[in-house]
Computed example of a mutant assay.
Amino acid sequence: MITGNENLLQISELNKEYISVFEQHGLGNYFKPENLSKTGRFIRLNTLLTSNNINSEHFINKLNQSLSEKQEVKENDNETLHFSAMLPCGLRNPFKELTESYFEENKALFKDLNYMMEGNVNHELSYYPLLDSITDENELPDVIMASDINNFFHRPFIHRFIENDVFEAVEPFIPNHYLQKEGFADPNKHYTMYTANMLVMVVDKNKLGDRKMPKKWDDILQPEFENSIIMRGENDFFCNAVMLPFYKDHGFEAIKILANNIKSGMHPAEMVKLAGKEDDKGTAIYIMPYFFSKRIKDKNVEVVWPEDGAIASPVFLLVKKDKKEQHKELLNFLFSKKLAELLKQRHFPVIHPEIDHKDLPETVKWLGWDFLNNHYIGKLKEDIQETFMEVWNKK
Rank of each mutant, 00 (worst) to 15 (best):
H154P: 05
R155A: 09
P156N: 08
I158T: 10
H159F: 09
R160T: 13
F161K: 08
F161L: 12
I162R: 06
I162N: 05
N164Y: 00
D165A: 10
D165M: 04
V166L: 07
V166N: 04
V166I: 15
V166T: 15
F167K: 02
V170W: 03
E171L: 10
P172S: 10
F173M: 09
I174T: 15
I174A: 14
N176P: 14
H177I: 05
Y178R: 00
L179I: 05
K181Y: 05
K181S: 14
E182L: 04
E182A: 12
G183Y: 08
A185P: 13
A185H: 11
P187V: 08
N188C: 11
K189N: 13
Y191M: 11
Y191A: 08
T192Y: 02
Y194V: 11
Y194W: 15
N197D: 15
N197V: 05
N197P: 14
L199S: 02
V200L: 12
V202L: 14
V203L: 10
D204K: 01
K207N: 05
L208Q: 05
G209S: 03
D210H: 14
R211T: 04
R211P: 01
K212P: 00
K215Q: 15
K215I: 13
W217Q: 05
W217L: 04
D218A: 13
D218L: 11
D219V: 03
Q222V: 03
P223R: 10
E224M: 08
E224R: 09
F225N: 01
E226V: 03
E226T: 07
S228R: 08
R232G: 06
R232W: 10
R232T: 12
G233W: 02
N235Y: 12
N235Q: 11
D236R: 06
F237E: 07
F238H: 15
N240A: 08
A241L: 08
A241M: 14
A241T: 10
A241E: 15
V242I: 13
M243Q: 15
M243L: 15
L244M: 09
P245K: 03
F246Q: 06
Y247A: 01
Y247R: 10
K248I: 01
A254T: 03
I255G: 14
K256D: 09
I257H: 09
L258Q: 09
L258H: 07
A259V: 01
A259E: 11
A259F: 04
N260M: 13
N261K: 06
I262D: 00
S264Y: 10
G265D: 06
G265S: 06
M266Y: 10
P268F: 09
P268K: 04
E270H: 11
E270P: 02
K273I: 08
A275W: 07
A275G: 02
G276T: 07
E278Y: 05
E278I: 06
D280A: 12
D280K: 11
